[in-house]
Write a protein that binds this DNA or RNA. Structure first.
Length: 779
DNA sequence: ACGGATAGCACT
DNA sequence: TAGTGCTAT
């Protein structure tokens, strides 16, 4: 009973909308295509035959297939026409041809030797941007959303109740209403009657309003995208989802409260979301429950005994049509991944081949991360590598390949290197203590699947607004994340030429380029929209700036710019020219700590100043702001607080002043993920908190600056894991008078930042920089 | 010795 | 936390 039970009488209006179809290639393709969405698109009739234009596949049995060389490829989507022939997802292309000889097979685009689903994702985003207009919207998958239309429905009911509402579109009359007897007569008339009757239950009226709203939305989607979709309208997510699949394609259905039990009772348990797998099987076998109705006989306690508190309560609830899950207002995915399988004979057996594919996957991932940053101002914080492998000779050949993750550094090359290192660390662990990695040999192992993914994607905070405003003369930033999302996501979906690596600078607005090039050639990526970078640039205006730039250059940036075309380009973007000097030394002094923090974070996370690395600066700043923020306990970013690396100014200053020149970092290999971690942790222990002195005689940051070299042979895994102590930031040692030199509009904020204990409580949370730069309260 | 590529989430 | 497992499409 510790689990809270959601309201039994749920009068929310929730819709689940499911795309029936999908995209094209320049024009149109589809996932589970549907007649209405079909427009002409190129089609490859038989791989070896010439391409011919298929003007119209409307109404024809069609399927989308990826990788056709082996048994015709695998189907990932099947049109409704083809389904009638028994064609099913996950069939082979050849099988599909057997049961449906006339089937048209459309191929998923291939990029970098792997299936590329970006067009589907883009299509999904298009639809989301439309569906999000009328209420809270949650992107549930690439082609599904949940909508919370409660507010809109209530408003509608108050202002324009159904019984007075004239039909503005016929679509709503095509709604299905679960439980409405359809035996006789004019169905439309009955639906009209149901939707508009004035004596209806309040909740039914709300649903009726929801039906109107959804009908309009679906028409809008069709009009703007040519995609059709189906929808379920009910009082909660579970019911809406369940219903949306009942009448496809291009239809919608309402689930009145009164028909919920009738719907669920006979429903095979496996049809319920979440119960399609092992849990559902267990319910059948262990409890003998084959329908949802069968679950009713079990007490909540009994279900909890079997499946735990949460799952038990959840089961008890859904058997009764109760589901309190909220519609999360989230239009964007929480992670990005790129993966590929190498089945059977194609298994990867050499480090070199693995490296190749990791590079390919990482490249795609990096591209998508840049797009995300560009379009949504979000930064991913964690890089994870996963693999599935087999061991042919050894005993426990069924061990799972461990997944490994590390902080994510932006930049294709960095991701490639980090990913490879993560893989190698995983492989080492997988193979056990004996590592024989003579490359290019049959080592008795094979890699069947590889995937590289990025998670912990967090929107860039807007903590430095007023400061940015001062330096920039105007406020281009967003005051809040929500605003940012609202502004960027829905409208701008189709705008930018989603990050091709050919020319990053071409993606920059000319305004940005002007601003940067005039002042030197630090060609900062995406500077235009990111106020934090303004700070970063300002910070680089004097000798400290010079040292920064020096420090920020990685060894490979400096020494080996030609290791890849991209790298070359990036290198070309940075010339290390002096930047104009600052106007006010005092301002700089006041802001120096911020700059130092930036630099420190940059170093810590191994980023350098180059186009592709500027996202890392953002990342760094983000880490700073999140780690400095005094975190409400519910804050999911609370984890960053333990990393508070910016707590020590005097020592930092000393540190910088002590570095008269920037010596060439010695080349050192970072061999494993552990070492990456260790070295990055090292950044925060550069200065000892008590003494304020460098811990090691040799400049330890050099370790950070070295790129990890690609390993072809055995990784040399060191076990030592250094633990870190955060610096303690001596805020009091900053001369308070510098604040007076600051422009009035930011004085208050900086002051509060310098003396948080005095000002913290008086300042409003939210838009203020103080919010982000407060030291952490402990626990 | 193939169902592929991707996501999200709960649990530990 | 990071890593595993399950579920879904």
């Amino acid at each position: 009973m510790p689990v809270a039970r959601p309201e039994t009488s749920d009068s929310r209006v929730i819709a689940h909308v499911d795309m029936d179809c999908f995209y094209v290639q320049g024009t149109l393709v589809l996932i589970a295509l549907d007649a209405e969405a079909m427009v002409n698109f190129p089609w490859d009739a038989d791989d070896d035959v010439e391409q011919r234009q298929q003007p119209n596949l409307r109404g024809q049995p069609t399927a989308v297939v990826q990788y056709n060389s082996w048994k015709g490829g695998g189907l990932i989507a099947v049109s409704y026409e083809a389904r009638k022939f028994g064609v099913k997802r996950s069939m082979r292309g050849d099988e599909a041809k057997q049961v449906c000889p006339q089937i048209q097979l459309v191929q998923v685009p291939v990029a970098r030797g792997k299936a590329d689903l970006s067009i589907y994702r883009d299509a999904g985003s298009e639809v989301v941007s439309i569906l999000a207009r009328k209420g809270r919207c949650e992107r549930a998958s690439i082609d599904e959303v949940y909508l919370d239309l409660t507010d809109a429905a209530q408003t509608m009911l108050a202002e324009n109740p159904p019984e007075r509402l004239e039909i503005t579109n016929e679509e709503v009359l095509k709604s299905h209403v679960l439980g409405l007897s359809l035996d006789a007569g004019d169905v439309k008339e009955k639906v009209r009657e149901w939707l508009h009757r004035s004596d209806a239950d309040q909740r039914d009226k709300l649903l009726a309003c929801g039906a109107h709203i959804v009908a309009k939305l679906r028409l809008q989607v069709l009009k703007e995208t040519e995609f059709s979709c189906s929808a379920g309208i009910a009082h909660n997510k579970m019911l809406a989802k369940l219903a949306s699949g009942m009448n496809k394609p291009a239809q919608q259905i309402v689930v009145p409260f009164s028909s919920v039990m009738g719907l669920l009772q006979p429903l095979p348990i496996k049809k319920m979301k979440q119960l399609g797998g092992k849990l559902g099987t267990s319910l059948q076998i262990d409890l003998g429950a084959n329908t949802v109705g069968d679950l009713l006989q079990f007490s909540e306690a009994k279900l909890q005994d079997h499946y735990g508190l949460n799952t038990g309560t959840w089961l008890w609830n859904i058997a009764r049509g109760i589901n309190g899950d909220e519609v999360e207002g989230r239009l964007l995915p929480k992670s990005h991944g790129s993966g590929k399988t190498f089945p059977g004979p194609r298994a990867l057996k050499t480090i070199a081949s693995v490296e190749h594919w990791i590079h390919e996957l990482s490249e795609e991932l990096s591209e998508r991360l840049i797009s995300d940053l560009d379009q949504n101002k979000r930064i991913a914080h964690t890089l994870t590598v996963n693999a599935s492998a087999y061991k042919s000779n050894d005993s426990d050949s069924h061990k799972k390949f461990p997944s490994k993750s590390c902080p994510l550094r932006y930049g294709t090359v960095k991701i490639q290197e980090d990913a490879l290192n993560l893989f190698l660390a995983g492989l080492r662990e997988y193979l056990g203590p004996y590592i024989k990695t003579r490359a290019d040999q049959c080592n008795g192992w094979g890699i069947i699947g590889l995937s590289v993914s990025a998670s912990k994607i967090i929107a860039i905070p807007s903590g430095t607004r007023s400061i940015m405003k001062y330096f920039h003369g105007q406020d281009k930033s967003f005051s809040s994340m929500k605003q940012l999302n609202d502004k960027i996501i829905p409208g701008d979906v189709a705008l930018s030429p989603s990050g091709r690596s050919e020319s990053y600078s071409r993606l920059l607005p000319t305004e940005t380029l002007r601003g940067c090039s005039r002042e030197g050639t630090m060609n900062m990526y995406a500077m235009h929209s990111l106020d934090q970078l303004e700070d970063a640039r300002t910070m680089s205006n004097d000798e400290v700036g010079r040292q920064e730039r020096c420090l920020l250059m990685t060894s490979t940036d400096r020494e080996d710019p030609t290791c890849s075309p991209l790298k070359q380009q990036l290198h070309d973007g940075f010339t290390g020219e002096a930047l104009p000097s600052s106007s006010s030394g005092l301002v700089l002094r006041a802001l120096l700590p911020i700059g130092v923090k930036l630099v420190s974070a940059s170093l810590r996370f191994g980023c350098g100043v180059s186009i592709e690395n500027n996202p890392s600066l953002l990342l760094a700043l983000h880490r700073i702001t999140t780690s400095m923020r005094s975190t409400p306990k519910k804050d999911t970013e609370a984890n960053f607080k333990s990393q508070s690396i910016f707590s020590g100014t005097s020592s930092i200053l000393r540190f910088f002043q002590g570095q008269a020149s920037c010596s060439s970092p010695r080349q050192e290999c970072v061999n494993t993920a552990q070492e990456i971690k260790a070295s990055q942790s090292l950044g925060s222990q550069t200065v000892d908190s008590s003494s304020g002195e460098l811990i090691e005689g040799e400049f330890p940051l050099q370790l950070l600056l070295t790129e990890s070299k690609t390993l072809k042979g055995a990784p040399n895994l060191r076990q030592e894991e250094r633990t870190t102590d955060a610096w303690s930031y001596k805020i009091d040692e900053i001369d308070p008078s510098v604040v007076n030199e600051l422009p009035p509009e930011i004085q208050k904020e900086v002051q509060a930042w310098l003396r948080p204990h005095k000002r913290a409580n008086t300042l409003k949370r939210g838009s203020s920089i103080v919010h982000y730069f407060l030291p952490n309260k402990h626990e």
